[in-house]
Design a protein around this nucleic acid. Structure first.
Length: 634
RNA sequence: GCCAGGGUAGCUCAGUGGUAGAGCAACGCACUCGUAAUGCGUAGGUCGUGGGUUCAAAUCCCAUCCCUGGCUCCA
C-alpha cells in the first residue's frame, strides 16, 4: 500500500498504481466530477496518472489557476484540430493558455476572417460532442522528429530541436489528431462545455519580427455556459469603461487625424490634469523637491553627449535651426543636468531633488498608439535627484514611499518590476551591478515583492517599474525609478566634498504618474468616469425644476462659484428627470434640485452620484460638506 | 512597422452599382413639470482622401491617411 497525502494534510492508503481520478472519486463524487488534473508532489499530471509511491496529491479543478490553464490549453488543442479539419494544410505553431483564455498560432494559406471563427467554433463543438479522450504517449527524439517531419509540421520540428537533450518528449492524441505537448490535459474533449473564439490577430513566430507572421486565433472556454456569459459581460463592462469612449462622452480629450498620437485636451480634461498637477506640486514641495522647466528642442551635441543620439535615435524627432541639427527631447534628463551644471554645488546641498513636468516627444510605431495610454507626446512628471553615493538607498526609499502614497490616494493597486541591463547599454557591468543591487536593496528593505525583467532597463541604468492596470486587465507602466551612475560621468557632474575636492554625484530619474496622459487614461478607467469630487470636471450641477426657479438656481450657482466649486446650471427648458438623467450620464458627483420648496427654505435638494436623492439641506451646509470632501480627496 | 478588420450627420449605426437613411444630440415651438429620456417640427453629410472602371460608385479596382484588435516596441 502507498500513502497519499492530500492538501488538507489528511492521509489515505491505496494500492500502488492508483490514478488521480480514482483518488478523487474516493474522496467525493462532486470532486471527481470537478477534477481536471492532479498535482503529484508538485508536478501537474493527467487524471489517469498512476501514483506508484507515497506522494502528496492535490486535485486540480477549474477553481485553481492551474486548472483553468489545463482547461484552456486542452481547448486550444480542440481549436487546432478543428482548424486542421476545416483547412487542411494548415501548419501548427504554438497554442498556450493565457490569462482568461488561450490562443493558437497557425500558418495557413487561408486568411481567417471573423466569419470563419463561427465555423471553427461549430467544428469545435462537434469535436467536443465526439468526446474524444486526450491520450498521452511519449516518444524518442528521433521518432518525434520523423513523425512531425512526415506531417509537414515544420514549426513543431523547430520546437523539438530546441528541447534540451534530456527532455521527455510527449504527445497528446485526441481521435486521429496528434500534437506535440508536455500536458497535462483534460480526460476528454467532452469535458469542455462553453467555448468562444474572440479574435484573430497576426503574431510573429516566436515573437520575433524577422520571422514569418502567423495567424493567431484567440478564444476562451468555461465549464459552464453561465460562466462564459459572465466573462463576456465583464468584457462588455470593460468596453464601457474604456477611457477612449469615456474621454469622448465626457468631453475630456480627443485625438485627431491631423495629429496621430498627439492628444488634444479639452476644457474638462484640462481640469483633471490641472488638479493632478496641483496635487503633484503640493506633495513634491512637501518632500523637498524644487521645480524647473527646460526647453523642448535642444542642440544635437547635447544628445550625442547623453548617448541618446546613439541609443535612442529611432524614437526621436529631429529638426534644423539655422542649418544646425536639433532634436526634440524624448526625455528630460539632459535638460535637468544642464540646470545642475549651471553652477557649482557643495555636498551640503545634496540631495538636490529637481522636478519637471516636462513635455517629451517619442516616435512610437503607428500600430502601437492607443488612446492616452500610448501616445507620441506626453508630459512626464519627472524629477532628477542628484545625491551623494551614501544617500542612494535612503533616496530610493523616499521615492518608493512617495509612490505608495500617491497610488494610495487613488486606490490604485500596482505591482513592481525590476528591470536589468539591456543589450544596448552604456557603461560597465560593475556599475550596472552596483546600481541594480542598490535598487534591490531598497525594495527588500521595504519588503516589496517584485518580479525581475531581465534586459529591460533604460540604456543608462536599471529601473524599478510600477505597473497599473486598465479596465481589461492590461497593465501599463506608470511610475519608474531609475538609478544612474553614467549620466553624471558623461556630463562630468561634480560637487565639492568636505575635503574641498570635486566628487561625482549619483542620479535618480523618477516619475510617479509616469505620464499625465497615461495616468489620466488609467484613472478614467479605474473610476469608470466617475471621478472623485476633487478631480471631477464638474462638481455640481444645479437643476431648477421649472423656469420659475431659474433665478434662485442662479443664486445658488453664484454662491458655490464664490467658494471655488466647479458648478454648472442646467437652464434648459427640459423636464427635471431628463436633466437628472443627463447629469448622471456625465457622472457629475452632485446634482442640486431646486423648486418651490427649496426657495422657501433657502435649501437645495441633494442628489448624490451613486446614492440618489439624499434630501434637502441648507445651501451653506452643502457648501461645507462638499468643500470637506474636496479637501480630503475622498 | 507587420497581420486582420474598419472609416457614412456632433454621437451610435443601417444602407453592396440606380434619387444618401434611422435613433440620440443640436435648433425652433408648445408643455411649467419633484429625482434616470414630454410632444411636434426644423436643420444637418462632396459617404476618410486621391485616382480609376462604368451611362451611373457610399457600394467595384488601385493608392494613401486614420482608427480598432493583436504582434513587435515602450511612460
Amino acid at each position: 500500500m502507498i500513502t497519499v497525502t492530500l492538501k488538507d494534510g489528511s492521509k489515505r492508503s491505496y494500492e500502488p498504481g492508483v490514478t488521480v481520478a480514482e483518488v478523487a472519486k474516493d474522496i467525493s463524487h462532486g470532486l471527481a466530477r470537478a477534477a481536471l488534473a492532479g498535482k503529484v508532489d508538485g508536478k501537474l499530471v493527467d487524471l489517469n496518472y498512476p501514483i506508484n509511491k507515497d506522494a502528496d496529491l492535490e486535485i486540480v479543478t477549474f477553481n485553481d489557476e492551474e486548472g483553468k490553464e489545463v482547461y484552456r490549453h486542452s481547448t486550444a488543442h480542440v481549436l487546432a484540430q478543428a482548424v486542421q479539419r476545416l483547412y487542411p494544410g494548415t501548419k501548427l505553431a504554438i497554442g498556450p493558455a493565457i490569462k482568461d483564455g488561450f490562443y493558437y498560432d497557425f500558418d495557413s494559406s487561408h486568411k481567417f476572417t471573423p466569419e470563419d471563427l463561427e465555423k471553427i467554433e461549430a467544428e469545435m463543438y462537434k469535436i467536443i460532442k465526439e468526446d474524444l479522450p486526450f491520450e498521452r504517449f511519449e516518444l524518442s527524439r528521433e521518432e518525434a522528429l520523423r513523425k512531425f517531419k512526415e506531417a509537414g509540421e515544420t514549426y513543431k520540428l523547430e520546437l523539438i530541436e530546441d528541447l534540451p537533450e534530456d527532455a521527455v518528449i510527449s504527445c497528446y492524441k485526441q481521435g486521429d489528431w496528434v500534437d506535440l505537448c508536455a500536458g497535462p490535459h483534460l480526460p476528454s474533449t467532452g469535458k469542455i462545455k462553453a467555448v468562444k473564439l474572440t479574435s484573430v490577430a497576426g503574431a510573429y513566430w516566436r515573437g520575433n519580427e524577422r520571422n514569418k507572421m502567423l495567424q493567431r486565433i484567440y478564444g476562451t472556454s468555461f465549464p459552464k455556459k453561465s460562466l462564459l456569459d459572465e466573462h463576456l459581460e465583464r468584457l462588455e463592462e470593460a468596453k464601457r469603461r474604456d477611457h477612449r469612449k469615456l474621454g469622448q462622452e465626457l468631453d475630456l480629450f480627443s485625438i485627431q487625424e491631423e495629429g496621430p498620437g498627439f492628444p488634444f485636451f479639452h476644457p474638462k480634461g484640462m481640469i483633471i490634469r490641472n488638479e493632478l498637477e496641483n496635487f503633484w506640486r503640493v506633495e513634491h514641495k512637501k518632500r523637498g523637491y524644487q521645480e524647473i522647466r527646460t526647453p523642448i528642442i535642444l542642440n544635437r551635441s547635447l544628445w550625442e553627449k547623453s548617448g541618446h543620439w546613439e541609443h535612442y535615435k529611432e524614437n526621436m524627432y529631429f529638426t534644423q535651426i539655422d542649418e544646425t541639427d536639433y532634436a526634440v527631447k524624448p526625455m528630460n534628463c539632459p535638460g535637468s543636468i544642464l540646470v545642475y551644471k549651471s553652477k557649482i554645488h557643495s555636498y551640503r546641498e545634496l540631495p538636490i531633488r529637481m522636478g519637471e513636468l516636462g513635455l517629451v516627444h517619442r516616435h512610437e510605431l503607428s500600430g502601437a498608439l492607443h488612446g492616452l495610454m500610448r501616445v507620441r507626446c506626453f508630459t512626464q512628471d519627472d524629477a532628477h535627484i542628484f545625491m551623494l553615493p551614501s544617500q542612494v538607498t535612503q533616496e530610493i526609499m523616499g521615492v518608493i514611499d512617495l509612490f505608495d502614497y500617491f497610488y494610495g490616494v487613488f486606490n490604485l493597486p500596482y505591482h513592481v518590476e525590476l528591470s536589468t541591463k539591456p543589450e544596448k547599454a552604456m557603461g560597465s557591468d560593475e556599475i550596472w551591478e552596483t546600481a541594480t543591487n542598490a535598487l534591490k536593496d531598497a525594495l527588500e528593505k521595504r519588503g516589496i515583492e517584485y518580479k525581475i525583467n531581465e534586459g529591460d532597463g533604460a540604456f543608462y541604468g536599471p529601473k524599478i517599474d510600477f505597473h497599473l492596470e486598465d479596465s481589461i486587465g492590461r497593465t501599463w507602466q506608470c511610475g519608474t525609478i531609475q538609478l544612474d551612475f553614467l549620466m553624471p560621468e558623461k556630463f562630468d557632474l561634480t560637487y565639492i566634498g568636505e575635503d574641498g575636492q570635486k566628487h561625482r554625484p549619483v542620479m535618480i530619474h523618477r516619475v510617479v504618474f509616469g505620464s499625465l496622459e497615461r495616468f489620466i487614461g488609467i484613472l478614467t478607467e479605474h473610476y469608470a468616469g466617475a471621478f472623485p469630487t476633487w478631480l471631477a470636471p464638474v462638481q455640481v450641477r444645479v437643476i431648477p425644476i421649472t423656469d420659475k426657479h431659474l433665478d434662485y438656481a442662479k443664486e445658488v450657482v453664484e454662491r458655490l462659484e464664490n467658494k471655488d466649486i466647479r458648478v454648472e446650471l442646467d437652464a434648459r427648458n427640459e423636464k427635471m428627470n431628463y436633466k437628472i438623467r443627463e447629469g448622471q450620464n456625465q457622472r457629475i458627483p452632485y446634482m442640486l434640485i431646486v423648486g418651490d420648496k427649496e426657495i422657501e427654505q433657502g435649501s437645495v435638494s441633494v442628489r448624490r452620484r451613486g446614492e440618489g436623492d439624499i434630501g434637502a439641506v441648507p445651501v451653506e451646509e452643502f457648501e461645507k460638506t462638499i468643500i470637506e470632501e474636496i479637501i480630503s480627496k475622498a
